[in-house]
């Protein structure tokens, strides 16, 4: 028997198989699962004085000895605005982990000092830094209304004439700038709708699809610490080519009539205290009335209605609302393309 051949052949194969094993190891890293956490390089910022109005960005860097769940929290000391960035990795690379001045939680940042905290899940270590915003970020989009010049001239405002109706511009708690639009009051009879503001729109230059077209607006409620039951913002978008307000005898614009192509979305309920900034893709709007092709086409939008509604206290629907003012104030209404405003 040619014994040598029999020995050499399997030996060569084994060596070959060993050399062919390219994967480093199977499964998740045990070091990541069970190893003690340590900071290799602490938190550093590429700049501590960003001017976001000039396009500055702040990059963050840190290095750990293993992959961890980390969270970066930037908080404005004056505005209280918060930006959160999180990830799972063994390092923060300034080219990937960066801040352009936007916010995760309104109000928006102002020119102010900010605290920066980097925390690690299940670890006591917290790394801290500070920065100063020299210029705030400008958001790109199609403005609808920011109420800085009062109620837009072409807008139509209607409200019921019951108690404490506030369908007007106010300055006491704006989300952005100096003004906001206050929508609220208290209904004395069995009626859900308190009031509304209609605005004509010309979006013919928009080319993105409904999935990539966002309506963004801030909604304020409960500043007095009380919330009306089932209060909400009813939003209508019309694609009707009819004249915006041909019939002056109506309480609102004509383009939202029931035989026209209108889409609806409800921010419901509005059950928070203070401002929240809401972004809704146009594709999330439902068909309210079928007057056209029923295809949501951003470029065809001709008008928007922002309506304050609430469960009435009358007729025992929501008797607890008899002593509470409804508030669904709005500010900084803007359309954006391809991403929501806060994701810019």
């Amino acid at each position: 028997m040619r014994t040598v051949q029999y020995f050499l052949f399997p030996l060569a194969l084994c060596i070959g198989f060993y050399a062919c094993s390219t994967e480093e190891f199977e499964g998740p890293s045990i070091v990541n699962l069970l190893g003690a956490f340590a900071v290799v390089d602490s938190l550093e910022l590429t700049t501590a004085t960003p001017d976001f109005s000039a396009g500055d960005q702040v990059g963050f860097s840190a290095t750990f000895n293993k992959d961890v769940d980390w969270t970066l929290r930037i908080e404005g000391t004056a505005s209280g605005s918060v930006k959160l960035i999180s990830g799972y990795s063994d390092a923060l690379e300034p080219s990937a982990v960066k801040w352009n001045g936007n916010t995760s939680q309104v109000p928006f940042f102002t020119t102010e000092d900010c605290t920066v905290e980097l925390t690690i899940l299940d670890e006591p270590d917290t790394m801290r830094a500070q920065l100063t915003v020299l210029g705030t970020r400008s958001y790109e989009g199609i403005p609808v209304a920011d109420f800085e010049g009062g109620i837009p001239e072409e807008a139509l405002v209607f409200h019921q004439f019951s108690q404490n109706m506030t369908f007007d511009v106010a300055q006491d708690a704006p989300l952005m700038g100096a003004n906001y639009f206050k929508m609220g009051g208290r209904m004395g009879w069995n009626e859900w709708m308190l009031g509304q503001i209609d605005l004509p729109l010309d979006l013919s230059a928009v080319t993105v699809s409904a999935e990539n077209f966002y309506l963004n607006l801030g909604v304020l409620s409960g500043l007095d610490g009380a919330l009306a039951t089932d209060q909400y913002v009813n939003i209508l978008l019309s694609e009707s080519p009819a004249a915006f307000n041909d019939d002056l005898s109506n309480n609102g614009a004509d383009v939202f009539q029931t035989d026209m192509e209108v889409y609806k979305y409800q921010i419901r309920p509005v059950d928070w205290l203070g401002w929240q900034y809401v972004s809704i893709p146009y594709s999330a709007f439902d068909v309210k009335s079928q007057g056209g092709d029923n295809v949501r086409t951003p470029a065809d939008i001709t008008g928007i209605r922002l309506q304050c509604q609430s469960c009435p206290s009358a007729n025992a629907n929501c008797p607890e609302n008899a002593d509470v003012d409804v508030r669904t104030d709005i500010d900084f209404v803007m359309f954006t393309e391809n991403s929501s405003l806060l994701d810019q």
């Binding site: 198989f17 060993y18 094993s21 994967e23 480093e24 190891f25 199977e26 499964g27 998740p28 890293s29 045990i30 070091v31 699962l33």
Partner: peptide
């Protein structure tokens, strides 16, 4: 082992 599990 041919390759490690959870570690090289």
């Amino acid at each position: 082992e041919v390759i490690g599990q959870g570690i090289p």
